[in-house]
């Protein structure tokens, strides 16, 4: 419950205070958000499986974000930033879908 509240508060705060994103971070924010979403879905699935451990969630969340940003950064340096970020989004999307499927089976038994 508190976790869901945290998400809601984060969205509200982000909409209200409208913080200025530093230009350095800006290209990585969308990918980082998608990576974090992937971690959250994975965590939700783990919880439903009864194998959730907070430490693992924290590590996977942070490492997901960092690795995704790193890949985009590397892609930009290599001149294939657009393609590489598309690839990252595709892979993360596949994982989000498979996790969502597992969650769906738990929640709806179907």
């Amino acid at each position: 419950m508190i976790a869901v509240l945290g998400l809601v508060v984060g969205v509200v705060v982000g909409l209200l205070i409208r913080p200025e994103v530093p230009a350095v971070v800006e290209p990585y924010l969308p990918i980082a958000v998608v990576a974090a979403l992937d971690a959250v879905f994975g965590g939700l699935r783990a919880m439903l499986d009864g194998i959730f451990v907070d430490k693992v969630f924290v590590v996977s969340f942070l490492s997901n974000v960092v690795v995704a940003a790193l890949i985009v950064f590397l892609g930009d340096k290599l001149g294939v930033g657009a393609q590489l970020s598309t690839g990252v989004v595709v892979v993360l999307g596949i994982r989000i879908f498979s996790n969502a499927a597992a969650i769906r089976r738990h929640v709806f038994r179907a």
Partner: peptide
């Protein structure tokens, strides 16, 4: 502890989402 940690991370996620 787990709820708080997850809440913190989800707060960060929500923030990033909203900003983006």
């Amino acid at each position: 502890r787990a709820q708080l940690v997850v809440a913190l991370l989800l707060f960060v996620l929500g923030l990033g989402l909203a900003i983006q």
